[in-house]
């Protein structure tokens, strides 16, 4: 394991059960995340990857083990953009700024800067229902960036988008990640998406949820889907994912 810097997130034997005495949703999970790293949690449905993200976000508490988190908490992006439908794109971003304690006079300028970063300047005054799914996720990204946390958690943020929109948002996210130096933990069930984005991929398997394999992806960015190394690693991970899900479904 690379231990260049102190980890920003550190999980040791983390367990999670929702019902006391009930089944373990997460079973003895251990992993570290380094500052600035882009980690993908990959797995099929029911393997507890969203639950794990909820623990890191502080929405839920672990029932066992140790979970070390950054003191300032984490920003989070949901699969459904979860924007406030009564606020314009700009005001949605300003809400995060306000709750972070940014002075009223500075909010507008910062929000506009963040919307410019995700190429939404022209849509700043539109409300969520007037935006496409991809634009809504851009606003959600700007809002998450407005939280100014070192860690950004993303729960299948692009899963509901069409392939073309998803592809352009992958490039956007990669650029934003490079520009801002955030640490990103990205949950996905899509092997190609994980291969496109992750420095490291943690494969999770169900019943009970746990991390069963790990890949370091040392391929230069932006990664082309037809790069032979990308192709071979994608095939390898897909095969392993199929095997892990297979002993659940066969």
């Amino acid at each position: 394991m690379r231990t260049a810097a102190a980890p920003i997130i550190s999980a040791t034997n983390v367990d999670k059960t929702f019902v006391p005495g009930g089944p373990r949703v997460l079973d003895s999970i251990s992993f570290d995340v380094e500052p600035g790293e882009f980690v993908c949690l990959l797995g099929g449905s029911g393997c507890g990857k969203s639950t794990l993200l909820g623990l890191i976000a502080g929405i839920e508490q672990p029932t066992g083990g140790t979970l070390m988190l950054p003191a300032d908490g984490a920003a989070m992006m949901f699969q459904d953009s979860a924007l406030m439908p009564w606020l314009s794109a700009r005001r949605n971003v300003e809400l995060a700024l306000r709750l972070r304690g940014v002075a009223r006079a500075d909010r507008r300028a910062i929000a506009e800067e963040l919307l410019a970063m995700v190429h939404l300047t022209a849509a700043a005054e539109r409300r969520p229902h007037e935006l496409s799914g991809g634009m809504r996720q851009r606003v959600a990204l700007a809002r998450a960036l407005a939280q100014e946390r070192s860690v950004l958690l993303m729960d299948e943020p692009f899963a509901a988008l069409d392939a073309i929109t998803r592809d352009s948002l992958h490039s956007e996210l990669e650029r934003v990640w490079t520009e801002t130096g955030r640490t990103i933990v990205f949950v996905t069930h899509n092997v190609r998406e994980a291969m496109r984005l992750g420095d490291r991929i943690l494969l999770m398997a169900p019943t009970p949820g746990g991390v069963v394999a790990e890949w370091h992806i040392d391929i230069d960015r932006p990664r082309a889907a037809d790069d032979p190394r990308v192709v071979s690693t994608t095939a390898e991970i897909t095969e392993r994912l199929r095997r892990e899900m297979g002993h659940e479904h066969s």
Partner: peptide
């Protein structure tokens, strides 16, 4: 419930 989660994540 998602709005409550957002409120929590945003530190409200």
């Amino acid at each position: 419930p998602q709005f409550h989660q957002v409120a929590r994540v945003l530190g409200a």
